[in-house]
């Protein structure tokens, strides 16, 4: 997959890297068990600090998206991801709150927010190659 970060963004770079990889998994661009570049290789290609990439990988490991093995390096979790349970849904709802709150402040209706939601969801579907 093409991993993209924005150096000018307010979002920390390690978060951007982690989010970009999760997007890649959602889109099917990163397959289960697929190897990711080593910390050094990715840091060199992106031109960012090694710690930044390491932090991103640790974050992904914590969330269960990757495994870090001594031999194979960093790989996308080869097993099924856990299904979304109540706890997960509640956490996601919590994370959506500020986003929807901001949208309401800007005068967006529920219909408009829904539309935006569909659009983003659509953009995360596997692309036709």
């Amino acid at each position: 997959m093409l991993l993209s970060i924005d150096l000018q963004s307010e979002t920390p770079i390690y978060t951007q890297i982690a989010e970009s990889i999760i997007e890649g998994i959602a889109r099917g661009e990163l397959a289960k068990g697929e190897g990711l570049p080593s910390v050094r290789a990715l840091a060199v290609d992106l031109g960012v600090n090694l710690h930044t990439v390491n932090k991103a990988y640790q974050l992904l490991k914590q969330e269960g998206y990757v495994q870090i093995n001594r031999k194979q390096g960093v790989v996308i979790e080869p097993n099924e991801f856990p299904k979304a349970d109540e706890l997960f849904k509640r956490r996601q709802a919590e994370r959506m709150k500020p986003i929807i709150a901001e949208a309401i402040c800007r005068g967006m209706t529920q219909e408009q927010i829904r539309e935006l939601f569909y659009e983003v969801h659509e953009s995360l579907q596997p692309r036709q190659q």
Partner: peptide, 8 residues
């Protein structure tokens, strides 16, 4: 200021 890399 976007940096793009191919992970493969």
């Amino acid at each position: 200021q976007k940096i793009v890399v191919q992970t493969r």
